[in-house]
């Protein structure tokens, strides 16, 4: 497979996963959150009982436009937030790695 074809395909796969398949993701707490929630019960009023997660503080950037993988907190925008995240990540990581790369492949 040609390099350009492969890289383009890889990007499309990432975009489809973040932009579409992300809607199928489980919304249950992940393993770490589950462990920190042990001893608590989640109610509408917040956490009752005693658990590690009660020490957790709000994120400093909780009001940022893409917080919690939603665009301005709007429901159903996870996919769009995911697509933006993939594009930001590939730009930041690709840019950094392009700057860091060895210019002459044979140099040892």
């Amino acid at each position: 497979m040609k390099n350009r074809t492969f890289l383009f395909g890889f990007l499309i796969v990432a975009l489809v996963l973040a932009g579409g398949v992300s809607y199928l993701a489980s919304s249950s707490p992940d393993g770490l959150d589950h462990a920190t929630l042990q001893g608590c019960e989640e109610t509408d009023a917040g956490l009752t009982g005693q658990c590690v997660a009660q020490n957790a503080t709000d994120h400093d950037l909780a009001e940022s436009p893409l917080a919690d993988y939603a665009v301005s907190g709007a429901e159903g925008t996870t996919g769009l937030a995911g697509v933006i995240g993939v594009l930001i990540t590939v730009a930041v990581a690709g840019g950094l790695f392009w700057l860091l790369r060895r210019r002459t492949p044979t140099r040892g």
Binding site: A14, A25, L87, A93
Partner: peptide, 14 residues
């Protein structure tokens, strides 16, 4: 760069 983006995407898939 694409590996990083792919991992970002897959981390969303709980």
């Amino acid at each position: 760069g694409l590996v990083a983006a792919f991992i970002f995407a897959v981390q969303m898939l709980n």
